[in-house]
């Protein structure tokens, strides 16, 4: 028996229900489970996408509220994709994945909202272009 005979990294093909899981991965190996998840994801996504295009194409929603409705539908569809396609869930085996995702969302929020906020203020406080031109010597 050599010392090298045992290598924990050798057994990487099968997952155990009791360990943590990376996104896109689950202990469930049966194809039917993955097909069912894909079907559900596709079904929900089609409904949400059609709703988004309908919200714009028809006048079912009060005009000024369309933007908010679109954002809500987009966030909902991203959630559907995360759960059914990427298999990121709220289960205890997914804690690390969800924490990383939460940090990513925080950074995305800071970048997008911060940029819009700061640049909006800058442009609001800027002197109109015609007056700026008059001040040129």
């Amino acid at each position: 028996m050599s010392e090298l005979e045992y290598d924990p990294n050798l057994h990487t093909a099968e997952l155990d229900a009791r360990e943590d899981h990376a996104p896109g991965d689950e202990p469930e190996e049966s194809a039917g489970h993955w097909v069912r998840n894909s079907n559900l994801g596709l079904g929900f996504s089609i409904v949400l996408t059609l709703a988004a295009f309908l919200a714009v194409g028809s006048h079912l929603i009060w005009g000024p509220a369309v933007g908010v409705a679109l954002i809500v539908l987009a966030i909902g569809q991203m959630g559907v994709h995360l759960v059914f396609f990427l298999h990121v869930t709220t289960g205890p085996d997914n804690t690390n994945n969800v924490l990383a995702l939460a940090f990513g969302i925080l950074v995305v929020f800071l970048i997008v909202a911060g940029s819009i906020w700061i640049m909006g203020h800058l442009s609001h406080n800027m002197m109109p272009m015609d007056r700026l031109m008059q001040m040129q010597p």
């Binding site: 924990p8 990294n9 057994h11 990487t12 093909a13 997952l15 155990d16 009791r18 360990e19 943590d20 899981h21 990376a22 996104p23 896109g24 991965d25 690390n96 994945n97 990383a100």
Partner: peptide, 18 residues
């Protein structure tokens, strides 16, 4: 290979995916 405590490093499949 569960990656907890004394059970050794996480499996490569988990490390790669994460």
């Amino acid at each position: 290979g569960a990656g907890h405590g004394a059970t050794g490093p996480a499996r490569k499949r988990i490390v790669v995916g994460y």
